[in-house]
């Protein structure tokens, strides 16, 4: 059975453009709005990443920390996250959705229990920030057996040897971290250099869908458009922060932002 993630990439490839992948935090800025945001941005986004918040993140920058903080303050629990996914999938059954977060929440919930909830709510993939290869071997195999994509990460510090091994254990999608940074850092490497690395990896993983994330905003997205997919996260979180400050509707603001992001890559 072909995964929805794979189908999304195939569709984009036919349209000769990268897949637009968005990241928002479940429950930001409210449980209701977070669902509304997913529904409205899914018109223009090809794959949705949804963060399940953790209060001690070791790889997130200020913007995503802010979103997670808001969400946790609203009392969001894992069951709410799955509820949001379930409700979203009711009206958007074909749109791929990836959950992203830290391992402790999965560990406390129990790996099998967590994956069962993923399955029953309709989650298509998982990114676990602090469960690198090879530590993730057992869990990623469990995911595979349940037809949930476990998305492996590569970074500029990953050696070629290691890359080959990680790629071998990857599923339909691989995430390349553009630079040494937490999420939302300013792009400190030129798009040209990022793409140079990207092409090197692509040679090792020709049949995989390789996406680039970290530091991508409306300003930089078009310069990276040859990639299979591009992830924008912090700018979305920041837009929610700003719209709350200005008493604007975050749903409308995000809808507009994602529309404009899409425009830059078609």
């Amino acid at each position: 059975m072909k995964s929805k993630i794979k189908s999304a990439f195939e569709k984009c490839r036919k349209e000769k453009r990268p897949a637009l992948i968005t990241y928002t935090v479940a429950g930001d800025n409210t449980k209701k709005n977070s669902l509304k945001i997913l529904s409205s941005i899914s018109k223009n986004a090809d794959i949705l990443e949804l963060g399940f918040p953790h209060n001690t993140p070791i790889a997130d920058g200020g913007q995503i920390q802010g979103s997670s903080h808001r969400s946790l303050k609203n009392g969001i629990k894992l069951k709410d996250v799955f509820q949001i996914v379930k409700n979203f999938k009711k009206s958007n059954p074909l749109k791929p959705l990836i959950l992203m977060g830290y391992y402790n929440l999965i560990y406390q919930n129990g790996e099998n229990n967590f994956l069962d909830s993923c399955k029953s709510s309709g989650v298509d993939g998982l990114i676990v920030v602090d469960l690198p290869w090879p530590e993730n071997k057992i869990f990623s195999n469990k995911c595979k057996r349940k037809f949930i994509n476990f998305i492996q990460l590569l970074s500029p510090t990953t050696s070629k040897d290691r890359m080959k091994k990680i790629i071998k254990d990857s599923h339909d999608m691989i995430y390349y971290i553009s630079m040494l940074s937490t999420t939302g850092g300013k792009l400190k490497v030129s798009p040209k250099n990022i793409l140079k690395n990207y092409k090197k990896i692509k040679k090792l993983a020709n049949n995989k869908n390789l996406v680039i994330g970290f530091g991508i905003t409306i300003k930089t997205i078009s310069s990276l458009r040859i990639a299979d997919g591009l992830v924008v996260g912090s700018q979305l979180c920041q837009t929610i922060t700003n719209s709350i400050k200005k008493r604007q509707n975050p749903v409308i603001k995000l809808d507009k932002l994602v529309y404009n992001l899409k425009k830059r890559i078609i």
Binding site: I58, D130, E135, T157, T158, I177
Partner: peptide, 9 residues
């Protein structure tokens, strides 16, 4: 070592 990929190396 429960760390992001970037810290592996």
């Amino acid at each position: 070592n429960f760390i992001p990929e970037t810290l592996k190396k």
